[in-house]
Amino acid sequence: MIEKMVEDTAVELLRIAATELPVEYVEEMDRLMRETEGSVGTSQMANILENVNIAREGSKPMCQDTGVVAFMAKVGDGFPLRSKLKEVLVEATKRATKEVPLRPNAVDMFKGNTGSNVGLNGHVPIIYVDMVPGDGLELVAMPKGGGSSNVAAHRMLKPGLGLRGVKQFVVEAVAQAGSLGCPPYFVGVGIGGGEDACMKLAKDALLRPFKVRSPDHRVAEIEEELLVKLNELGIGVMGLGEGPSVLDVHVEMAARHPASLPVGVVISCWGLRHAKATISAAGKVEIDRNA
């Protein structure tokens, strides 16, 4: 049964995302800890790394805020599960909430916490679906915590401010995030597309593999420049002024309306949690713990 297979896989992805931080992030933080001068920054990094280790070994959520659940699905033309996919992912979210367990993080403004990470009006979990060639399904689970979501920023710039204005806004947004969203941060920037699209681009940017630069060298240069400048802000680990402030910056770009320059900045805490699986039409599942 393909439905059961997708559901089981989605539960497993949520478990992996919550309990296993991708190894390359851990290695980078370990390297940066050794470069950190000052006992406060070093000890904060050591606490993070020890915590990540306990999570992996005990298969427990590394952070109590297991986030609002989002799935990004790329559905192949020939994949047998189509309109039912959403229902299956909703069911997987409910199950993972009990089985991992995840913290119930879906609050109904009138009735309170739904207790299941599901609700209201079919909007949570957040599900993005893309139709792609082929007959497989690529599924990414990305639960995102409230602390770093609260420091996201959005602005419709005057186009005359150009890329300089965009970069200035990113610096402003990350400085504003300061100590609040559990730095060191991952920063996703979306430029263009419209007021909603730039935020989605920014979220997608976070999922580009670690330290992989944009294929457009002009965008890649902006990423490198921002990575250096944002670290010069000196926020430091946990906002205590020592150690790294930002681990990586990814920028995605779309065309813009002549009168608009939309910019979205989506920030992740050090625990950028996600996991990916591909499922073939025949039901073969491959899980990528680090993607």
Binding site: Q44, N47, C63, D65, M238
Partner: peptide, 9 residues
């Protein structure tokens, strides 16, 4: 200040 995210510690 407790280290943010260090929920198991």
């Amino acid at each position: 200040a407790f280290t943010g995210g260090a929920a198991l510690l």
